[in-house]
């Protein structure tokens, strides 16, 4: 595990694209800011490999900001687990997490989201959202949000949902002449865009450009 400390007021913004595994532990001092983007989108990967993303954040000083955005698009029999462990030890901080999975074929996804707000961490604002899209009956998603909140003056929300493509939207698009496969792709792209749009332009890695182009290619 790679532990690093973000000193007072420091800022870390980083994209992790198709890392075979990620084990990150960050300790945030007062007023520091972390923005992490974890993208798993590589259907050419060796099939027996299971990807494991573990992101642990400790807000150890006042007024820290943490944002975690994760997107996995799985095909074949790919497996991705994403774990987030966010601890607010001190108050006045914020954390926001948006974790999305798109699961096709026989792929399997797992999200474990642990969020702790310590008794002293008053005035914390913490949000965790996990949305998953199943494109196949054989795909599987397991999601485990774990919230432990010991402070009373906080704003904390979490939501998790797993669904399928909206049949009414698919039919609406078909009724306008859009073929079913293309309609499906438009809806999948729309689902993924919410995460991809969070990445600042300056941070978009070259190797992500083909994915963004393929999205634009369909929809432009």
């Amino acid at each position: 595990m790679d532990t690093s400390v973000l000193h007072k007021g420091e800022r870390l913004e980083k994209v992790f694209l198709n890392e075979p595994s990620l084990d990150l532990h960050l300790v945030q001092e007062a007023g520091s800011c972390v923005r992490i983007y974890v993208i798993n989108f590589d259907s050419s990967r060796s099939r027996d490999l299971e990807v494991f993303n573990r992101i642990a954040i400790d807000q150890a000083g006042e007024g820290c900001e943490t944002e975690i955005y994760a997107l996995a698009y799985l095909k074949g029999d790919e497996k991705v687990t994403t774990e987030t462990h966010v601890t607010h030890a001190v108050g006045g901080g914020s954390s926001n997490q948006l974790i999305k999975f798109v699961l096709d074929d026989k792929s399997q996804g797992r999200f474990l989201g642990e969020l702790k707000i310590a008794q002293d961490a008053q005035k914390t604002e913490a949000h965790q959202t996990n949305r998953n899209l199943l494109l196949s009956e054989d795909a599987e998603m397991r999601t485990q949000p774990q919230l432990e909140i010991y402070a009373d003056d906080v704003q904390a929300t979490h939501g998790a949902s797993t669904g399928q493509l909206d049949e009414a939207a698919l039919f609406y698009m078909q009724q306008r002449g859009i073929g079913k496969q293309k309609a499906r792709q438009l809806l999948v792209n729309a689902f993924m865009k919410e995460v991809l749009d969070k990445i600042p332009d300056s941070l978009i890695p070259d190797s992500l450009t083909p994915l963004l182009d393929s999205i634009d290619g369909v929809v432009q």
Binding site: L186, K193, Q220
Partner: peptide, 15 residues
Amino acid sequence: VEIPGVSMTNFMRTA
């Protein structure tokens, strides 16, 4: 039907 994330331009041009 509302289709969040698909712009009118992209939708209409595809159609």
